[in-house]
């Protein structure tokens, strides 16, 4: 028996806004603990991890572990048809994922399961010297400020500030955010803004965002739901000076 019911489909929708812009296909694994997926884009620049715990769901029936391979663009088209006050139900029938949204009207979509073309490596565990929190709206606005001058951004964290900097052909930009965390080392790394914007498409997932950084290390951006009911995290490879 496989049936998941979620009274807030926006968690799924906002996750897949980002996931579908990064990867073409994903394997969603569901077992008695919850739902999770790991995926990496074809160029191995961005890794994404989604985990939704069993207790987040209104109904969670999963008698045996199941793997659902889906085309993210096709699933996103369906999720875009949900309204915020709809109740979402996921079931499986034969070779399809059945997605139902029920509000004023009931809509049912059958999304064909696919064969995966490539395997996703296990999530790397990286030790970071620096970790801070920042409201995701603040991060998004800062990236929009930087974006007007350049297509890459330097993240610089010291004991007081997160500074985002860019040098453009005609203008330079610098944004400073007083992070208020205990930081004992400085960290600096450069990233492509296009990749950061893909991750920020998930902004409605949760407000609490963690940034982990080290010199020339990947950027880890973690969005956490309240009471650890779910997490969406991204790992973005840096640009490195030659």
């Amino acid at each position: 028996m496989f049936k998941l019911i979620l009274s807030d489909p926006s968690i799924f929708k906002t996750s897949f806004e980002a996931i579908s812009s990064i990867v073409d296909e994903v394997q969603i694994e569901v077992d008695s603990d919850g739902l999770r997926l790991n995926a990496i884009d074809r160029s191995h620049i961005t890794y994404v991890h989604l985990e939704l715990k069993e207790r987040l769901f209104d109904v969670f029936q999963c008698d045996e572990p199941i793997k659902l391979n889906v085309d993210t663009e096709e699933l996103m088209k369906v999720l875009k048809r949900s309204k915020s006050d709809d109740v979402m139900e996921l079931t499986v029938d034969g070779g399809s994922l059945i997605v139902t949204f029920e509000g004023a009207i009931k809509k049912t979509f059958k999304v064909k399961l696919i064969d995966l073309e490539y395997e996703t490596p296990e999530s790397p565990s990286i030790e970071y010297p620096v970790k801070i929190t920042i409201p995701i709206k603040t991060l998004k606005e800062s990236i929009q400020d930087i974006e007007i001058v350049a297509d890459r951004v330097e993240f610089n964290i010291d004991q007081d500030f997160l500074k985002l900097k860019a040098v453009g052909e005609f203008s330079d930009a610098e944004v400073e955010y007083l992070h208020g965390e205990k930081v004992t080392e400085d960290a600096r790394a450069i990233f492509a803004i296009e990749n950061i914007k893909e991750m920020l498409k998930a902004e409605k997932f949760a407000d609490t965002t963690y940034i982990s950084l080290g010199d020339d290390m990947p950027l880890t951006l973690t969005l956490e739901l309240l009471n650890e009911e779910g997490e969406l995290s991204f790992l973005l490879a840096p640009r490195i000076e030659e």
Binding site: I45, P124, M217, A237, E242
Partner: peptide
């Protein structure tokens, strides 16, 4: 000059 690296070297 910078280049985009992949995550492979960090796994």
């Amino acid at each position: 000059n910078e280049k985009q690296v992949s995550l492979d070297s960090f796994f």
